[in-house]
Computed example of a mutant assay.
Amino acid sequence: MTPLDRVLSSKNAVLAFGGIIALATAFTIFGNDTPLFPPPEDPTGDPATWSIDQLRRWLDLRNLHPSPTATREELLERVRLNIRRPQ
């Protein structure tokens, strides 16, 4: 049996590796305030220049779930009807 085989078959090595993985997982879930994948920012500017994905995201963030078959023009019209202009 080689030294590498002895290390890999050792219960202590397996437990140590499992502990490291458990600590890294716990830190990722509970240890930091920033999310691992922050949500994309709200699109800004003129909606006419937004991509289809940006139009869909804007509507989704406001619980105005667009139809999957909606065209770009339909999405743009729906955004324009629901956008709040500063007064």
Rank of each mutant, 00 (worst) to 15 (best):
Met1Tyr: 12
Met1Arg: 13
Met1Gly: 15
Thr2Asp: 07
Thr2Ile: 08
Thr2Met: 03
Thr2Leu: 11
Pro3Gly: 01
Pro3Thr: 08
Leu4Tyr: 15
Leu4Ala: 12
Arg6Tyr: 01
Leu8Pro: 01
Leu8Gly: 07
Ser9His: 13
Ser10Lys: 04
Ser10Phe: 14
Ser10Gly: 11
Asn12Glu: 15
Asn12Pro: 04
Asn12Ala: 15
Ala13Tyr: 14
Ala13Arg: 11
Leu15Asp: 14
Ala16Leu: 15
Ala16Thr: 15
Gly18Phe: 10
Gly18Cys: 08
Gly19Gln: 10
Gly19Ile: 00
Gly19Pro: 04
Ile21Tyr: 03
Ile21Met: 09
Ile21Glu: 03
Ala22Ser: 11
Ala22Tyr: 08
Leu23Val: 14
Leu23Tyr: 04
Ala24Gln: 08
Thr25Trp: 07
Thr25Tyr: 12
Thr25Ala: 11
Ala26Cys: 02
Phe27Lys: 12
Phe27Pro: 00
Phe27Ile: 04
Thr28Trp: 02
Thr28Phe: 07
Ile29Phe: 08
Phe30Trp: 09
Phe30Glu: 03
Phe30Arg: 05
Asn32Ile: 14
Asp33His: 05
Thr34Leu: 06
Thr34Tyr: 05
Pro35Glu: 10
Pro35Val: 07
Pro35Lys: 01
Phe37Trp: 14
Pro38Cys: 06
Pro39Lys: 10
Pro40Phe: 05
Glu41Leu: 13
Glu41Asp: 05
Asp42Tyr: 11
Asp42Arg: 08
Asp42Lys: 11
Pro43Tyr: 10
Thr44Met: 01
Thr44Val: 14
Gly45Tyr: 10
Gly45Cys: 03
Pro47Glu: 11
Ala48Cys: 01
Ala48Ser: 11
Thr49Asn: 06
Trp50Ile: 04
Ser51Asp: 00
Ser51Gly: 07
Ile52Glu: 12
Gln54Arg: 00
Gln54Leu: 06
Leu55Arg: 07
Leu55Glu: 03
Leu55Gly: 04
Arg56Glu: 08
Arg56Cys: 03
Arg56Trp: 03
Arg57His: 10
Leu61Val: 05
Leu61His: 06
Leu61Arg: 12
Asn63Val: 12
Asn63Tyr: 15
Pro66Arg: 02
Ser67His: 04
Ser67Pro: 09
Pro68Ala: 08
Ala70Asp: 11
Ala70His: 01
Thr71Leu: 01
Thr71Trp: 00
Arg72Tyr: 05
Glu73Ala: 04
Glu73Gln: 02
Glu74Asn: 11
Glu74Arg: 10
Glu74Met: 10
Leu75Pro: 12
Leu76Phe: 06
Leu76Arg: 02
Glu77Pro: 04
Glu77Val: 13
Glu77Trp: 00
Glu77Ala: 15
Arg78Gln: 15
Val79Ala: 02
Arg80Gln: 15
Arg80Gly: 05
Leu81Gln: 13
Asn82Ser: 13
Ile83Gln: 10
Ile83Lys: 00
Arg84Met: 14
Arg84Ser: 08
Arg85Asn: 09
Arg85Phe: 07
Arg85Val: 07
